[in-house]
């Protein structure tokens, strides 16, 4: 049952889904905090869609439990459906409907009273910037517009949680950015957004939390920074000096937290070193101070920010269940 103070609005405990001998989801322990934008990433066939379909009450798990806002997806499917807005990775087309009729129909399916629907539809269309297409047939919309209309549909009953399967898949760059901005807007409205994507740039851009799934297993979970630190424990520091590179190398090797010092090719007459560093920010600051105190001519001292792709590649091994 619901626990209003639940820290995790989506939670799975040892979730398993098998199709015959194929294990699509294997002992999945997912925790999505309330208000998070949670990116669920993994290679194709990793079990993302299966997990989302279980959370959306569309398929039952083989074992384990899944909860939305404290409600079991198998025990209280109607309560779960009330609380979620689900968007699959395809756009179900009713080719004989107008845009407003599409929203009106789904609002009615969510038992929104008829007298409330016109205002609701106007608000939703304004939110996804489709007011000007209100009376157009759905089939005439571009793919990006259809995706935005789908997002509007998921909000028809004002759910707390949005479960979105590949919301930016197959969209052109402009449409992708529009969808991304919409997700951020929805998060601002207080929704928890749980979405899958294989476009890591999108995930890196907007996510507060990240879950990496491979072969049905969750290989990493937490805030983006936590995962970055967890999977990439070594920080790469690049130091450029005018001279005395040998002294610098010797001093650096004596410092705690320095795992390795490598030479980089000179650049613009500057000597460059790459330091693999395992310490925290304080230790890093101490490292810079030590170089300065010894009078070394440091020109630049910077940390290489490795992107989410490095994290992803580090976390996954390309296994498909």
């Amino acid at each position: 049952m619901s626990a209003a103070g639940n820290e995790y609005v989506i939670e799975t405990r040892g979730l398993v889904k098998r199709y015959g001998k194929l294990v699509a989801v294997d002992d999945l322990w997912l925790q999505v905090p309330r208000g998070a934008i949670y990116g669920f990433v993994g290679p194709n066939g990793a079990g993302k869609t299966t997990t989302m379909r279980i959370l959306a009450t569309l398929i039952p798990p083989t074992a384990g439990e899944a909860f939305i806002d404290g409600y079991s997806v198998t025990g209280y499917p109607r309560e779960v459906r009330r609380r979620i807005g689900y968007m699959p990775d395809f756009f179900g087309v009713y080719d004989d409907m107008k845009v407003w009729e599409y929203l009106d129909f789904f609002a009615a399916c969510y038992e929104i009273p008829a007298r409330e629907r016109p205002a609701l539809i106007d608000d939703l269309l304004a939110l996804v910037d489709l007011t000007h297409r209100r009376d157009d047939m759905v089939e005439k919309l571009s793919r990006g517009m259809k995706q935005r209309l789908s997002l509007a549909r998921t909000l028809a009953h004002d759910p707390d949680v949005l479960i979105l399967d590949e919301p930016a898949s197959g969209l052109d760059p402009r449409a992708r950015i529009e969808v991304r901005e919409l997700l951020v807007e929805m998060a601002r409205m207080g929704k928890t957004i749980f979405f899958s994507s294989h476009i890591l740039a999108d995930v890196a851009e907007i996510c507060t939390h990240l879950g990496i799934i491979e072969a049905g297993n969750l290989v990493a979970q937490g805030t983006v920074e936590e995962i970055r630190r967890q999977l990439l424990p070594v920080r790469e520091i690049t130091i450029a000096l005018l001279d005395r590179v040998e002294d610098a190398r010797r001093i650096l090797r004596e410092m705690t937290g320095v795992a390795q010092v490598r030479d980089l090719p000179d650049e613009g007459g500057r000597k460059r070193l790459r330091v693999d560093f395992t310490g925290d920010d304080a230790a890093l600051s101490a490292l810079l101070q030590a170089l300065a105190q010894r009078g070394l001519p440091v020109v630049t001292f910077s940390e290489e920010m490795r992107d989410l792709e490095s994290v992803f590649m580090r976390a996954t091994r390309g296994i498909v269940s």
């Binding site: 569309l58 459906r81 689900y86 179900g92 087309v93 009713y94 399916c109 969510y110």
Partner: peptide, 13 residues
Amino acid sequence: EHQTFELLRATLL
């Protein structure tokens, strides 16, 4: 066939 059954199933209908 129109892939709309899944959408309906996720509603309260």
